[in-house]
Design a protein around this nucleic acid. Sequence first.
DNA 1: CACCAATCGTTTGACATCTAACTTTTAGAT
DNA 2: ATCTAAAAGTTAGATGTCAAACGATTGGTG
Lengths: 155, 155
Amino acid sequence: MQGPPEKRPIGMVLWKTVNETGRAFDLALSSVGGSRPMWFILLALKADPVASQREIAATVGIQGATLTHHLTAMEADGLLTRRRDPANRRVHLVELTDRGEAAFQRMRDAALDYDRKLRQGIPDEDIDRLRDTLDRLRENSASIMKSTRGHGTHT
Amino acid sequence: MQGPPEKRPIGMVLWKTVNETGRAFDLALSSVGGSRPMWFILLALKADPVASQREIAATVGIQGATLTHHLTAMEADGLLTRRRDPANRRVHLVELTDRGEAAFQRMRDAALDYDRKLRQGIPDEDIDRLRDTLDRLRENSASIMKSTRGHGTHT
DNA sequence: CACCAATCGTTTGACATCTAACTTTTAGAT
DNA sequence: ATCTAAAAGTTAGATGTCAAACGATTGGTG
């Protein structure tokens, strides 16, 4: 007795979707001098105009080391400033400059246009459900990470 | 007059979800000596035991250059063989070796376990809907890529 | 005060992915 | 037959991401 044909694992579908949609998005952003991580970092900063790096990393879902990398480049490019929080000198507070604000405005047009095209023909309700289910997957993966700490046996 | 509060752009939620779930998955696979791209390539080869590189790349959603990179490493590791198709010598046919088969079996346990934990508490119906909506997003992004060919104005 | 552990961020070195340019091979047109 | 264009892979160089180790700062405890 044989079960129903195996469906594609959801992790693979997710990964493939982000690879492919991400390529298209990067192409759209590069036409205004931007990139995916840059756009999402700017977006996080607009939502929270004076944020610590830890907060930004959590918002965009990348590791601190990766964020440092991007912030260093963006600061060198004059898009933002980093200064220590006088109240807690471990924390680095990040703020957009006028130049960063302008970059945000430029990318926003490209991003909105891309988002509209990406959702073409898909009801808002479906997108909302998608967002909810993705959130649940993220919650589960956070649990997995916590319970898997240090179980690696290789290398 | 002000519209409803902006929802998080679906592209950002997607990207964040794949970053975070992918980290957990990589951790699970590394404990049996595997990695995400390796696993998905093996999976594609199991579904289509003698495939061209072009087919594999399309199945897993990466570019040909990226696939070349992984296949070179996996071939050096004895997991697969590459040989030219006598009927069309441009094509390289890829096949799993016994060693590759064994690697697949090892990773499968880790992958199934991860998949089960990831879906914990989420109805199958929701996962099916997720898969469908992701497919529609991929279709749309394919259309965007076609119509955007060469519209880049920067650099 | 002095130590110790935790927190925030950076650095380093590895891997993954992409685009653009290139090689080899095939198919089509003349 | 030869030329040209397209297709399949590879290579080179750039960017993005991570984990692990480190540095600086703080808070807690003796």
